[in-house]
């Protein structure tokens, strides 16, 4: 019985599903990969690290955006390490983005995600980075306005109007940013 089940649910089922998925949804089934000039730059769904001032930054990651293996920090609410990390991240985010010292930094910029590969940030976190990116790219006021518009157009609303939180995909935004003139 185990053998029959193994062949049926362990081989036939996943292989047939793979075949159908590859035919009907080839892009998604292979990881929603994004290529530029024939070179693979990443996946729409997998966050990657950005440290340069010229790009929007993603959330902190417990694994440094290396997907082998994925995971979070697992620091508990009374962890001293977490407290120090959060305080450091808040200071740095305020300093590097030139915000007022008592600015409210959105929690997604203070805390690491569960997967360590979160591709999104909150719209607020993106907006707070606009001035820094514009400065680093020597944008004039016209270009900065265009950048502001670009960020706005990249905000994904909750799905079906009510599912999930609004978000901005960092990789897609940064790719669009590179083609902004």
């Amino acid at each position: 019985m185990l053998l029959v089940m193994t062949v049926f649910t362990g081989l036939i089922y996943p292989l047939v599903m793979t075949a159908i998925a590859q035919i009907v949804f080839p892009k998604q089934a292979n990881g929603s990969m994004i290529g530029i000039n024939g070179k693979l730059v990443g996946s729409k769904l997998i966050g990657q690290n950005f440290t340069s001032d010229k790009y929007f930054w993603p959330r902190p990651s417990a694994i440094g955006y290396n997907p082998l293996p994925s995971g979070g920090s697992n620091y508990g609410p009374t962890s001293d390490t977490l407290k120090k990390l959060v305080e450091m991240r808040r200071r740095e985010f305020i300093r590097l983005n030139g915000l007022p010292a008592n600015a409210n930094v959105p929690p997604d910029m203070l805390y690491a995600s569960g997967s360590g590969l979160d591709p999104d940030i909150s719209p607020e976190s993106a907006e707070l980075q606009i001035d820094r990116v514009a400065r680093a790219r020597d944008f004039d006021s016209l270009q900065t306005a265009a950048l502001r518009k670009l960020v706005k157009s990249h905000i994904e609303k909750p799905q079906l109007g009510f599912l999930g939180d609004p978000r901005v995909n960092v990789l897609e935004l940064n790719i669009a940013l590179d083609s902004l003139r």
Partner: peptide
């Protein structure tokens, strides 16, 4: 509230 270990898309 903390976002440690949580994903942006779920909240």
């Amino acid at each position: 509230p903390s976002m440690e270990g949580k994903e942006t898309r779920f909240g």
